[in-house]
């Protein structure tokens, strides 16, 4: 088996007294698309933020391409970061810049290329995500789906090895979100990337993911292929697949007590 491009070892994170990630162990292999599934608020975005260095875990280690990412020298971290693209849950485009300037920014800052070359490269990236003709629009002038595409173009600007997507299709209508899924599939082929997608949309997971990791209460309770997931008899997984709500356990006395002490 190939050496994983990302290795997460015993990762713990808490916000104050809230213990969100309770010992995550996860391997992500080169050129695969891994979907991290989980219920809202279970810590998916938090896990992703660790991968791109936006948050330091309470304990644990992350190795990216064999480098201890958390404790690496800032210069080495930056070198790794330049090869990671991130698509944020809310796009996070720079609102003061046009779409093209957004895509050009990382290139201008990190490459010695001429600005005319960068200009052409940015146009190409925008064309790949189907936004040619909108180069000079500001993010506020675009629809949500177009903003996602623009953010994707920006994430791809530096030709990353790893692309992280936080809920790429959240808040979009089914047709547009299917479009984003297809785009991700297309880009994966074109760019030879490892893609980490965080989502809770089963359909898009089954369409784009090679492997699925299920996050529940701060732990990875399952990793495997779609088939393995569908065959699993773990009640948590079945519940997720069948989209069943939690059974409400209502103990009268306990409820009353919680109200009184609340």
């Amino acid at each position: 088996m190939k050496e994983p491009i990302i290795k997460i070892r015993d990762l713990h994170t808490s916000f104050g007294s809230l213990h969100v990630l309770k010992g995550i162990n996860l391997d992500i292999f080169p050129f695969e698309t891994l979907a991290i599934l989980g219920r809202s608020g279970c810590g998916k975005s938090t896990l992703l933020r660790h991968l791109i260095g936006l948050r330091k875990p309470t304990s644990g280690q992350i190795f990216i391409k064999g480098v201890d990412f958390i404790h690496a020298h800032p210069r080495n971290r930056h070198k790794i970061l330049k090869k990671i693209g991130m698509l944020f849950q809310g796009s996070a485009l720079f609102n003061s810049m046009t779409v093209k300037e957004n895509v050009m920014l990382p290139l201008l800052e990190h490459t010695p290329l001429e600005s005319t070359t960068i200009n052409i490269m940015a146009k190409m990236k925008l064309e790949q995500v189907g936004l040619s003709g909108f180069e000079d629009y500001y993010p506020a002038q675009l629809s949500g789906g177009m903003r996602k595409r623009a953010a994707l173009a920006r994430a791809l600007a530096m030709d990353p090895d790893i692309l992280c997507c936080d809920e790429p299709s959240a808040g979009l209508d089914p047709i547009v979100s299917a479009g984003i899924d297809n785009l991700l599939l297309k880009l994966k082929k074109a760019f030879n990337m490892t893609i980490v997608v965080v989502t809770h949309e089963l359909e898009s997971v089954f369409l784009i993911a090679d492997r699925i990791a299920l996050l529940d209460r701060g732990k990875i309770i399952f990793t495997g292929s779609k088939q393995e997931m569908k065959k699993s008899d773990n009640p948590k997984i079945i519940q997720f697949l069948e989209r069943r709500a939690d059974e409400e356990v209502l103990d009268g006395d306990q409820y009353l007590e919680s109200l009184l002490n609340g």
């Binding site: 260095g53 970061l81 920014l105």
Partner: peptide, 20 residues
């Protein structure tokens, strides 16, 4: 206000992930 808005809309996080 500008930096605050950028913080809220994750633009500052985006800068950091671009190694800026």
């Amino acid at each position: 206000a500008e930096l605050g808005t950028m913080k809220v809309s994750e633009e500052i996080d985006a800068l950091k992930t671009m190694a800026l």
